[in-house]
């Protein structure tokens, strides 16, 4: 009755429609990957960690050894000796910097009196439209879905997926992210939404609230996810417009996401405290 080609065309159309429907459903949930995310994390995150560790080693070698060799015009013995010492020194410098970062994280952790776990960033999202990170701590270390991730500079995001040893973190700059926030000076309340391109929007800011460029934005703790009083960013742009009950407020995050190496996962968020 129907030709083979006709059946094929109909099958392709049905498949296309089903595909669009499935994609529409999963678009409404940022954590829609489920088990697939765990498989992907298991299969790739250890290698990601290996690459980041190896590249760190190569970088330190490059900075310490090769630069030295190219600049020194001394005899072979001294050059070798200096090179060895410089390499060693570079290692100490790296350790010193790491120590500094860790000390800053520790001071921050103690100051906040929250139960936190330090984690290393091993990978980032390859897609330009979404913003996530992979960290090297998972359910084995007590990391669970929904836990906030912070650094001394401010809030990074929250865990959306966790395998036994790795976890995926949704950054506050992702457009699926929303944080209940306050303007620190005026206590004007709103919701910080990610814009996707690296910036954030202070949504639902009442037109009557006085918000000016440079004001600090902190978490309110009312969303039950992020602890109260954590810095998020500063107001970068205010546009009251001519109508409407809300004003448009742009926020520049205080965290430089591209340079994140270590983060803290808050194990027991004390929302509102």
């Amino acid at each position: 009755m129907f030709s083979r080609r006709m059946v094929l065309v109909v099958a392709v159309l049905v498949l296309l429609l089903l595909n669009i429907a499935a994609l529409t459903v999963s678009s409404s949930r940022p954590d829609s990957a489920g088990g697939a995310a765990k498989i992907a994390l298991h299969m790739t995150a250890p290698f990601q960690k290996g690459i980041s560790v190896s590249l760190g080693w190569v970088r330190s070698l490059w900075n310490g050894y090769f630069k030295l060799v190219s600049t020194a015009e001394e005899n072979g013995h001294l050059r070798l000796e200096v090179s060895r010492l410089r390499e060693q020194l570079n290692g100490y410098h790296e350790l010193k910097r790491l120590n500094g970062r860790m000390r800053s994280l520790l001071t921050f952790k103690e100051a906040k009196a929250l139960n936190m776990v330090a984690a290393e960033v091993t990978g980032t999202d390859a897609s330009p439209w979404y913003r996530t990170l992979i960290i090297d701590k998972g359910t084995d270390h007590g990391v669970a879905k929904g836990q906030p991730v912070v650094v001394p500079d401010g809030i990074v995001g929250q865990v959306i997926e966790a395998s036994s040893r790795y976890a995926k973190v949704l950054l506050i700059t992702d457009r699926n992210s929303a944080v209940d926030v306050l303007v620190q000076d005026t206590r004007a309340r709103g919701v910080l939404q990610g814009g996707g391109a690296g910036e954030c929007q202070f949504a639902y800011a009442n037109r009557n609230d006085t918000i000016v460029v440079g004001q600090r934005i902190v978490s309110s703790g009312l969303d039950g996810v992020f602890p109260k009083g954590f810095l998020i960013g500063t107001v970068s742009d205010v546009n009251k417009g001519v109508s409407g009950i809300f004003q448009k407020v742009g926020v520049t995050p205080s965290v430089t996401f591209e340079k994140l190496e270590e983060v803290l996962v808050v194990m027991t968020p004390k929302a509102g405290s």
């Binding site: 498989i39 992907a40 790739t44 999202d125 390859a126 897609s127 996530t132 950054l171």
Partner: peptide
């Protein structure tokens, strides 16, 4: 596709 979707923050299936 599964690996790329699993690692990304994009909706699963993209």
């Amino acid at each position: 596709g599964v690996l790329a979707d699993g690692l990304s923050g994009s909706p699963f299936g993209l």
